[in-house]
């Protein structure tokens, strides 16, 4: 019985450039996000917007470079295609549940009553603290 592992290794001999480039670009995007956060003087809001854009770019990049996003159209094997589509849809569903669900749960009720305090915290701390108080408990 053919082992998927060896069919894979035979298909692409040589250096897997797609993966190498994807990997390097991911590191660059992460480093850029850190640099924007620590080294620029932007407001918290601007920083958040910028690093969110970086995050989405990186997610798209990884889907393309590592996750065989485009494979379903290449192959006419319908099960592979269906699995791929189902997988992406399910992943999107889970991602939305995690993010939107957390925002909803953390922002409701009790947390909402604390909003005033939270905002003060934000104004007073976030901007000042963004440069991170390293070592405050070291």
């Amino acid at each position: 019985m053919a082992n998927p592992q060896d069919s894979l290794s035979r298909e692409h001999g040589g250096i897997p450039w797609k993966h190498v480039i994807g990997y390097i670009l991911s590191i660059v995007l992460t480093a850029l996000a850190l640099w924007v956060t620590f080294e620029t003087g932007f407001s918290t809001r601007t920083i958040l917007i910028i690093i969110f854009i970086f995050a989405f770019l990186q997610a798209a990049l990884q889907l393309l470079m590592f996750m065989h996003m485009t494979e379903s159209s290449e192959k006419n094997n319908t099960l592979t295609g269906k699995t791929q589509t189902g997988n992406i849809l399910f992943a999107a569903f889970i991602a939305i549940v995690i993010v939107a669900g957390s925002v909803w749960v953390m922002g409701a009720g009790h947390a909402k009553h604390d909003h005033h305090k939270m905002e003060m915290d934000h104004d007073m701390k976030m901007d000042g603290d963004m440069k991170m108080d390293h070592g405050d408990h070291k």
Binding site: S102, M106, A111, M118, D121, H122, K125, M126, D129, M132, D133, H134, G135, D136, H137, K138
Partner: peptide
Amino acid sequence: FGAHFFTLQGAGMDML
């Protein structure tokens, strides 16, 4: 590393 994702100080969210 002294980050503040879940801590009480630094606008961390313990409940998260």
